[in-house]
Write a protein that binds this DNA or RNA. Sequence first.
DNA 1: AAGGTGACTAACA
DNA 2: ATGTTAGCCACCT
Length: 104
Amino acid sequence: MPDTFAAKVIEITNRIPRGKVATYGQIAGMAGSPRAAKTVGQILNRQSQTHNLPWQRVINRQGRISIATLEYPAQLQAELLGQDGVKVEERDGSFWVDLKKYLW
DNA sequence: AAGGTGACTAACA
DNA sequence: ATGTTAGCCACCT
């Protein structure tokens, strides 16, 4: 496991407790670069294709699922979160999580 | 090696 | 309050 930013992001993502969620910015900060939220998204996007990663526990700052990828539709992420014990409410085609309650 | 890119954010109009 | 703009920064080609 290389000691890179990407590796940390993956490791941190794996450590998100069941029933909790984290934001991209939060993970970026824990990985050492508080302003690299976008990079976190890119990493998850790519790494999820080759690793089994709980990427569904990572959402944006508003608690909204911002997945647009065809391989991983937001609806699938919503279901996975539901299995994690996280309530996901659908609003206008998007899925939302109560950060106050579920933020790691 | 250099430039383009994005599953983000915060700030501004 | 909602929409748009502009930084951000590591990864990929």
